[in-house]
């Protein structure tokens, strides 16, 4: 099947520094604004993107510094945001997506990041290879 071409696209790359978390979610929200989402939908997108970006920074790269890649696509009224890192990867994706599961129990994480992404977006897909990296695909339909 031929993939339908996106109506619009943007790409963003930044260092895995926590000071970029705010910038990353605000930039995705600004791109999404062309679909005139309600403030509630925009807040959902920002929160989900923040979860994926934070995970790339603290779990993917950890103490090392790498590049976080974000791609945004608009097709009709669907927004897809892809967040990629070339970090350590996830060996058990199902376990990682379980509510309250955290691989860092000693550092005050609630283990709710994936649950937030699942609740606040319409679709989520996780691709990950240990030692290679992780890609998170988040899609949300933005009603007229």
């Amino acid at each position: 099947m031929e993939r339908k071409k996106p109506d619009n696209q943007m790409r963003l790359e930044f260092l895995s520094k926590s000071s970029n978390e705010s910038f990353a979610r605000a930039t995705v929200a600004a791109f999404a604004s062309q679909l005139d989402p309600t403030l509630e939908v925009l807040a959902d997108i920002k929160t989900a993107v923040s979860e994926a970006v934070t995970n790339a920074i603290i779990h993917g790269y950890g103490t090392s510094c790498g590049i976080v890649h974000i791609e945004c696509e608009i097709k009709g009224r669907d927004l897809t945001v892809i967040i990629r890192d070339n970090g350590k990867g996830i060996s058990n994706i199902e376990e990682a997506r379980t509510p309250l599961y955290t691989g860092m129990p000693e550092s005050e994480r609630s283990g709710m990041g994936f649950t937030v992404m699942e609740t606040f977006m319409d679709e989520i897909e996780v691709e990950s290879v240990p030692g290679v990296g992780t890609s998170i695909y988040l899609t949300k339909h933005i009603p007229e």
Binding site: R25, K46, S50, S110
Partner: peptide, 11 residues
């Protein structure tokens, strides 16, 4: 704005 990191701080 708040995300799950805030939940962690509160808990």
């Amino acid at each position: 704005f708040m995300d799950s990191s805030g939940i962690g701080v509160i808990i």
